[in-house]
Nucleic acid binder design. Sequence first.
DNA 1: CGGCAACTTGATGCTGGTCAACATTTGTGG
DNA 2: CCACAAATGTTGACCAGCATCAAGTTGCCG
Lengths: 244, 244
Amino acid sequence: MSYQRMASDSPVARASCTQCHLPELCLPRSLPCGELLELADIALVSSPIQRGGIIFKSNSPFRAIYAIRSGMVKQYYECSDGQQKILGFYLPGEMLGFDGIAKGRHQYSAATLETTTICELNYEELKWVCSRTERLDERFHCLMSQEISKENESLLLLKSKTAEQRLAIFLNSLSCRYKQLGYSANEFKLSMSRAEIGSYLGLTIETVSRLFSRMQREGLIESHHHTLRILDPTHLHALCSEQC
Amino acid sequence: MSYQRMASDSPVARASCTQCHLPELCLPRSLPCGELLELADIALVSSPIQRGGIIFKSNSPFRAIYAIRSGMVKQYYECSDGQQKILGFYLPGEMLGFDGIAKGRHQYSAATLETTTICELNYEELKWVCSRTERLDERFHCLMSQEISKENESLLLLKSKTAEQRLAIFLNSLSCRYKQLGYSANEFKLSMSRAEIGSYLGLTIETVSRLFSRMQREGLIESHHHTLRILDPTHLHALCSEQC
DNA sequence: CGGCAACTTGATGCTGGTCAACATTTGTGG
DNA sequence: CCACAAATGTTGACCAGCATCAAGTTGCCG
């Protein structure tokens, strides 16, 4: 794995939000056509960024919000000892970078987990468009609100779920998000390593590995290489909603 | 403890943000005077709400954002078995309720921990004012961004800190926030119960209690009834920044 | 094919949870 | 204002889930 160039080094092109297949998820959702065109005017699409490409580094000046167009991105905190703590994974149609607005700097780093294309939305320009199109501003509020909700759920997960429940909820969440994107809900690629999953769920590599083995032994899932197949979605779902 | 009436039952009055002693923290921060007046025009101040008063209930329709004017508020998830999982504590100048924007309903409940007055900002009116005053809209983005940052820090805390570090960080955070409000940084009232602290930090009552005892034995803090005194701020600080 | 990173599996131990008994504080009604 | 009940907090004994340490296996890339 290599973390070479910044995303901003990649050649970019103006986006055409009207022709993107994700507008029902991303910022444009339910925007009238006119506002869509204004948005497209400020969105820059990157060329494909390979696995390990850095989108932004923690502490770098905040300039833009990013939307994933294809591929997958991880956001993480870098410890002083070089260790990474994963804060979240982002799939197509999802946005990241909001935490930089308040402090003017990115608080965390973001890197691609597979070949990925992103849309870059310059915040100053975005604000300008927002101030003129009320619907877009509202949509922007919604997305930040969603991010807050998502994190609240993660907090609840970490506070009161067992290791097995955490992994079940994680796999289920990926399944739902892929389904929403039109992909198979029960078979997809796990681009992240065991270490990254563990870091995200507050568990060690070993625990994650043991859980995968056990779930496989019990006929819940099938996993080899980086392909995951959910064999018993009902049971997986039951695990997710166990207890409180 | 009794959870009687909704905050919305309380008599209310128009706020005068210009005369509030919190404008350097709350939504008005660094707003020009004109915009402050527009904001004041939509802010409703509640009369004092006693301990245990409900500000909003989970699943109720989202109508407003709330700013704490004095006192303290907890936000929590209610489990099906009646148990509460605390998501956060809010002090004067802090705002809550953002998570309701996306779904149109409050995802969680909020209640007062002591006699509290709040400012209610109707979201529809707030959007209207935001759309006409760019600075306010920007400030609103900042506050949501701050909330996201705060939660990311909580996530990191839950993932990789020991029980002792968690409590130290919690006490330190309260200390800083009180200081910023102009109160003593080293002596304040802990309005929340051991159960609430535990729930917030992902620990049990017993663990929290033992930690308080130990920290007291070690001369770090002094705590009786609900008063906390930090005797050795340096040591407390050291605990917070231990390790990664 | 060799070397290294990622993953798996087992043995052992520690942190914090659970259960239980008791102490202290708070709230209520006479 | 006191007496009592209920809620909250403290402390101890014990236990379990997950971390840590260690050794081996698999898969990937030059």
